[in-house]
Design a protein around this nucleic acid. Structure first.
Length: 764
DNA sequence: CTACTGATTTTTTTT
DNA sequence: AAATCAGTAG
């Protein structure tokens, strides 16, 4: 038996060895689809005699592409793996366009605008069109423009389809936005795909070249493709029809950004001769986990491709359900539990993952992990390349190869401060508009001095200073190495000093370390020809996702959003924040489709777990600095109670709500009153006032779990910023905090000491 | 033009 | 709680 099919089940083998032509693989979670994809490639090369040069594999993340190539080293040899093309839609298109965008009459060294750049550009659009940002949020308009582009709808078509006031407005913004992108010689994320499709449409000879190069096309996570990606796949595959797509409509979680699950559901219509292969055996999870997952997904939408998942694995442990008093208790539970499992040797930290709906939820977990001294990595939140100082330096680098990049231009025009304020910049832009040239061109005119400018001498000299700097940095960049360019830039701009001046010596230190890390990344490009180093570097900076930086080898606990967790697996998984309003998220309750997507998100989370799964939620949660109370996620109701068990050795709540039966649905209001009523007898204990409870600034990492003794006692006079002066009636400890009951002039109130900033007036 | 301060708003998820 | 914004003093 050849090594590509070793250890594969019959269905997997059929997929791997499928004959040429369209193939749809409907693969449940944990069914080994990544393996199938990889082995299919190996099979094509080793058995079907396909030259790796002719294979194109599209993955969902760059990391997945890298891993696939690594695995292929063993199967087809490093040289063949090197030749193979693999990457995300975006990175592949960027690479193709770099080569062929000239056919659209555009220059090759285009900039790639990420979400932040897009927003800045849209803000400028609104300013240019004299629209009020407050009244017309740039984000909303950008969202419209982005979905229009993903549907391949031009501004003209958009106008036709949206004959409303808002539609009219968006159309004007859309047009101006595209004009500015063009003027900046930039493509935004959506454009990378749109322009590719347009190029193939307008130039069949170019398309034919790609079709003949890539005779075998493989696409992973096909359920998450949007309209443009669908068209792109069709364009490329239509000639040879060797299209192999893998996906699972139950794991479709990106409809919010335009993914169209119909792409996978109608594959057999698009390609009638397609072979369809179902992968239904799950190799990843215990029976208990799989049952839980099935319960969730089966309770949802019935429109899906039906799969009957099964596993040979053991029943395993019951899925644990945990209710915490608040997010700190929840995080504490998670961390205690991990520590316990690690201590018993059942799992290493690297085998544990904490998953949540929103990035903000990582905070309490991170704090608890720090307190415990456990190694962890947080995937997501702020991207490394999104840090301000990094983006600023990158903006200079972008200007070196493309001075027309107006977003980068505005970004560093006055960074570091060189006396070019808002007014001067606006004046320069107005003048550029008047002349009908890009802003950078206007600056050039200012230098030449042939056209009278409206700028005063002071501004003019500041602007020319900036121009001279850019010219100096860009000189001979083709011949200079990336590291050299960066060093000159850092020295010439005086980045380190600028940071010190901006943030103070201490905070500047950390930011400077980030810059140093950026510099060290740049050394990875030195083996390329000098003229390719900077463009390649910038392209990767724009396109690497967070999950691309996730290190599966590090023996550290992984904290990750449910979205980013797709495609990963861990022996032990904690899903936290399973509350209505968080999952399903309050912003996704408008339509049934949205709620169903939230359900699938939970399904994805559950199916990441191999051995142990914990479902956690909190009774009380801090949001926007206020306490909110919410009911546990409605999806939990769909899990038969016999599948769930409360974790051993942890009485979930020390608070009254612990008395709440695990399976009785209660409203948030009920719970609130619970807390009011069930108060233990009021104690007036003598106190030792702890070191410093209020107003301490270092509350993030050093602080112990909470006060261990009360610091207020009956009879004490205190002052509250809003309620005025009052007398303490009683004080007691509640989970991680101190609850003080104070009699104010109007009435008695109960306050949390960590919050209320009570000032002691006298010690009674 | 810059720097500070008080007010307002914010969190959904991301290639 | 944190970040961004608007307004004002220097």
């Amino acid at each position: 038996m050849s090594k590509h099919i070793q250890g594969l089940n019959p269905a997997q083998r059929r997929a791997v060895e499928a004959t040429a032509g369209p193939v749809l693989v409907l693969a449940g979670p944990g069914s080994g689809k990544t393996r199938v994809l990889t082995h299919r490639i190996a099979y094509l090369i080793n058995e079907a005699g396909v030259d790796p040069f002719h294979i194109l594999a599209v993955t969902f993340t760059n990391k997945a592409a890298r891993e696939m190539k690594d695995r292929l080293h063993a199967l087809i040899g490093p040289d063949a793996a090197q030749v193979l093309s693999a990457g995300t839609f975006h990175s592949l298109c960027a690479r193709f366009l770099r080569k062929d965008i000239v056919h659209l009459g555009r220059e090759r060294d285009f900039a790639i605008y990420d979400a932040d750049d897009q927003l800045r550009l849209m803000r400028r659009v609104l300013r240019d069109l004299k629209l009020d940002e407050k009244q017309h949020p740039p984000r909303a308009i950008l969202g419209q423009v982005s979905s229009a582009k993903n549907e391949l709808v031009s501004p003209q078509e958009y106008a036709r389809l949206n004959r409303t006031y808002f539609g009219e407005l968006v159309t004007r913004c859309y047009e101006r936005y595209q004009a500015l992108l063009r003027e900046s010689n930039a493509l935004d994320f959506d454009d990378l795909l749109v322009e590719m499709v347009r190029l193939f449409d307008a130039h069949p000879e170019v398309l034919a070249r790609y079709q003949d190069r890539y005779t075998y096309l493989l696409v992973d996570e096909y359920q998450d493709t949007n309209r443009v990606q669908y068209l792109l796949v069709r364009q490329l595959a239509l000639r040879h029809r060797n299209l192999f797509v893998v996906g699972d409509d139950d794991q479709s979680i990106y409809q919010f950004r335009g993914a169209d699950v119909r792409n996978i559901r109608s594959f057999e219509v698009d390609y009638p001769e397609a072979q369809v292969i179902l992968l239904e055996q799950n190799y990843r999870s215990t029976q208990a986990i799989l049952d839980t997952a099935q319960a969730i997904i089966n309770a949802g939408d019935k429109q899906r491709h039906l799969k009957r998942l099964w596993t040979d694995n053991d029943q395993g442990l019951d899925v644990a359900l945990y209710e915490g008093f608040d997010q700190e208790a929840e995080a504490g539970f998670v961390v205690d539990e991990i520590a316990r499992l690690v201590a018993t040797g059942e799992v290493t930290p690297g085998g544990c993952a904490v998953m949540y709906r929103t990035n903000a939820q990582s905070r309490p977990v991170e704090e608890a992990l720090i307190r415990r001294g456990l190694a962890y990595q947080i995937v997501g939140g702020m991207r490394f390349y999104d840090r301000k100082e990094i983006k600023d330096v990158i903006a200079y680098l972008r200007l070196i190869i493309n001075p027309f990049d107006s977003v980068s231009f505005s970004r560093v025009l006055n960074w570091p401060g060189r006396g070019i304020g808002e007014r001067t910049e606006a004046e320069l832009m107005r003048w550029a508009m008047e002349l009908g040239v890009p802003v950078f061109q206007a600056l050039r005119e200012l230098e030449t001095g042939t056209i009278a400018s409206p700028l005063n001498a002071r501004s003019t000299s500041a602007l020319l200073g900036f121009l001279a700097l850019i010219d100096e940095l860009s000189r001979d960049w083709h011949e200079r190495s990336l590291t050299e360019l960066m060093d000159t830039l850092l020295a010439r701009v005086g980045v380190r000093q600028v940071l010190e001046q901006e943030y103070g010596a201490e905070a500047a230190e950390e930011r400077w370390r980030n810059i140093e890390e950026l510099r060290s990344v740049s050394t990875e490009y030195l083996n390329l020809p000098t003229e390719a180093q900077l463009p390649t570097f910038l392209e990767e900076v724009a396109l690497v996702a967070d999950v691309d930086r996730f290190d599966a080898e590090a023996d550290a606990i992984t904290c990750i959003t449910l979205h980013q967790a797709k495609g990963l697996e861990f022996p032990v998984v904690f899903l936290i924040g399973l509350e209505d309003g968080l999952l399903p998220h309050s912003r996704s309750l408008d339509t049934r489709d949205q709620i169903e997507e939230e359900r699938r998100l939970l399904y994805v989370g559950i199916t990441r777990a191999r051995q142990r799964l914990y479902l956690c939620y909190a009774f009380k949660r801090m949001q926007y600095g206020r306490s909110t109370f919410s009911a546990r996620s409605r999806f939990l109701t769909d899990i038969p109670r016999e599948l769930l068990k409360q974790p051993h050795g942890h009485s979930g709540m020390k608070q009254p709500a612990a008395q709440t039966s695990m399976f009785t649905q209660r409203s948030g209001l009920d719970r609130q009153s619970d807390q009011r009523i069930a108060r233990p007898g009021q104690k007036t204990a003598p106190v030792v006032i702890p070191a410093n409870r209020s107003g301490g600034k270092n509350t993030r990492t050093q602080r112990p779990a909470g006060p261990t003794e009360v610091s207020f006692f009956a009879g004490q006079h205190v002052r509250h910023a809003t309620f005025g002066e009052g007398v303490v009636v009683s004080s007691r400890l509640v989970e991680g905090d101190e609850e003080v009951t104070v009699s104010f002039p109007d009435r008695e109130r109960r306050l949390l000491a960590s919050f209320a900033r009570l000032e002691r007036v006298s010690e009674a």
